[in-house]
Design a protein around this nucleic acid. Sequence first.
RNA 1: GCGGCUGUAGUCUAGUCUGGUUAGGACUUGGGCCUUCCAAGCCUACGACCCGGGUUCAAAUCCCGGCAGCCGCACCA
Length: 573
Amino acid sequence: MKNDEVMNIAKKRGFLWSSFEIYSGVAGFFDYGPLGATLKNNIMNKWRNYYVISEGFYEIESPTIMPEEALKASGHVDHFNDPMTECKDCLEVFRADHVINEATGKDVEGLENDELSRILSEEKLSCPRCGGHLTHVWSYNLMFQTLIGSKGKKTGYMRPETAQGIFIPFKRLLRFNRGKLPFGVVQMGKAYRNEISPRQGVIRLREFTQAEVEIFVNPKNKNHPNFKEVSGDVLNLYSAESQMKETGPSKLTAQHAVTEEIISSEILTYQLCLARRFLNDLGISDDVIRFRQHLSSEMAHYAIDCWDVEIETDSFGWIEIIGIADRTDFDLKSHSIHSKEDLTVFIEYSEPKTVMKIMAKPQMKKFGPLFKADAPKIMEILKNTDASSIEESFQEKGHYPVEVDGTIHNLTPDIIEFQEVEETIRGEKIYPHVIEPSYGIDRIIYSVLLHCFQEEDDRTILKLPADIAPVEVNVFPLVNKKELANLAQEIKKLLRNNGFIAEYDASGTIGRRYARSDEIGVPYAVTVDHKSLEDNTITIRNRDDSKQVRIPIKEVYNTLGDLINLRIRFEDL
RNA sequence: GCGGCUGUAGUCUAGUCUGGUUAGGACUUGGGCCUUCCAAGCCUACGACCCGGGUUCAAAUCCCGGCAGCCGCACCA
């Protein structure tokens, strides 16, 4: 399996290995070794080039530990507590609420475990598989819980996604962007999920790195100003419809996908295109990429459209590495309700609207003495009540009942005056919708390693794009002679002084060194030979075809700089 | 969480069934020799029985527990 070979090399050469090995490891945790950490940084910086520099979305950084209230609002506290029950006979484990729901049709979501246990026994429910006896219900919490502060009173959780760290300071972010939509904010960082049984190496981790973008848009305008730039891009789309019909994915232009309403909006389509371009830049080709739309049954209740970017692997099938969703206004609305903060955006109309409106005006001379302390509260209620409903009530019943703190006051026509007023409306307050591309960095790194790995004859080559390769250039003396070695060392120093990640290696034959170099994906090797001593030239060897060109030593860092930053191609030297 | 299989240097592996000398080999890696372009050869060195407990005069080997990996089930808003 290619997976096994890649993971072997990753371990052997210092990209990735499982953490805490000397204590026999803990499932779901991985270390990035010297090359892995550098590769990860390079990939994350390339990602920044896309989203921070090109798209103009600023990056923020928020804590990885979050207070319970925040995750309560986001729905994670409730959603991550799965009530479980086990069959004592066949030892199958089930979601208790699912068992009850399927057997009785009752909606028991959100009930306490004790309550669920009670229902299980009262309804005499048994194992759906073998009919055996079910145990009491316990919670399996997918969030890592911790306590904040020395008194340990405040419950905290490790964040299950970086996104919430963007929604919470939304007011400040909106102000930073001077109150105008659309704008995007990104965050890269660790997220944590206490998976029941993590497997598949780096694919399902308990601690992983996300790169998330939250783009806040006006729900009435989900177009994208630069859509033209991507409209011709061809996407391998596996829509919900073709999944149901089992017709397989189809290759369509972005324009087509929007026109045919396969993808719900221009902006979502634009994000799909961006993701594809990013993956291409990492050396992942289109034939292993597909965009799979969530079926309505698997879509989170707050999303209206969601596409997973999937990569084909030999041992895990198609794996999700990026999720691109239209999360609507769910998160902001929910945080707004829980925090009592106004998280709306004021959208100004291009033309102010004037409307005629009937206002119910209290006659204060009678109002005050009549209702005393309740008067201000009643006025507040009047302000928020449609005057026409009061008028109707007067006509039907002769009065309008108002409840204040449990007491009912009847308003009568003699204390209310109706006035027609002209009101100017300059705009409206709305909750923005959120378009969210969410990248799983660890899975992307795995995909990059997997698909850059090539075996040609007896050679193993990691064909990493030059601009993300952790080691940029190796310098070798052709044979281990003092004069050649000295010059090679000097050139390595020269390259390092010019900002290259350069290594020197004189151990073993030149072929062995080239082989080692290829295996970790070093794109170029500089070789010092006898001719170098005579005319101050060296050769640059191209990793992918092992061809060499000879250039003067004094041009070496300019040439390598151009090659590594993809300004020129090796063939054009 | 459950069941099955597995666990010997960096990697692959012999030995385990049938307990018994210094755990053997290959590759890799380090040092040296040789070598003027793609894992050659020679010399040399480093390096391992997953962890804990039990049985036994004696445990890599047998038993129990744990941990990890793989596969299947379940889970993965």
